[in-house]
Amino acid sequence: MENTNNNLKKLDQKTLSQSFHRWFWGALTCFSQEHMQTFGYMASMLPILKKLYPNHDDQVNAIHAYTAFFNTNPMLGSVIVGITASMEEARANGKDIDGETINDMRAGLMGPIAGIGDSLIDGTLIPILLGIALGMSSGGSPIGAIFYIIAWVIIAYFGQRFLYFRGYKFGDQAVNFLVGKQGAAVRRAIGIVGSMVVGGVLASWVNVTTSLKLKGADGKIFLNLQDKLNSIYPGILTVIVTLFCWWLMSKKHVSAIWTMVILVVISFLGVLVGFFNPGLSY
């Protein structure tokens, strides 16, 4: 690629925007277990390659760098697409960058970005938004759902757009604020918010109770277990069941589905001995 003449190639806003929108919409539309986001990536790089390389053969040559396997958190992964856009621009201008350099960067970043993204977006931000939305939904009100739709779509669209253009502008320096010291501090701080909100969600919406009551010979109840438990710590059974599930999954490596099966067994036995009674009636 001998483009060392004076007129440097520069990607315009429109092309970058098109590339970003393709990623925003199409990161996972053609997903398979084998190639995951590879085709989404190629589709979003295509406008950029077409802009940078007028020659068709160069375009075909360039796209081969993006046939390698790719998978990351699609929200934060937007920054990686932005970085490749700037690297591709540098390559088209004759800088010492080849497909391998681009692929090493992608392969190196997709793991850490996936880990941070999954815990930050799926594991923290979405539960916080949903927690607040659930709180607005009492009495079957649609306001919570509407709040979530508006809040999340705005955050997702402009957040990803910001990340994409930050990636384009700063190249691989762009991820420092995610993985660096400040990024780690922000993640810990958001993690605290997430933990507390999730605790609040559990207490507000989940209520595991026992119906166990012991009656004396005269038919009077002398032990109402639920009342006793409430006087110790309100919601203690809910916390115990949750911690039990956590213990099964993280310490005993039981899968989520088997954990649910274990809960079925516990419920069945609990109903048999009268520990649980949902109080059903027509």
Binding site: L202, V208, V241, T242, F244, C245, T259, L263, S267
Partner: peptide
């Protein structure tokens, strides 16, 4: 009864 406990798995 299981229905009441299932969110505990999600939170866990």
């Amino acid at each position: 009864t299981v229905g009441g406990m299932l969110p505990c798995v999600g939170i866990a």
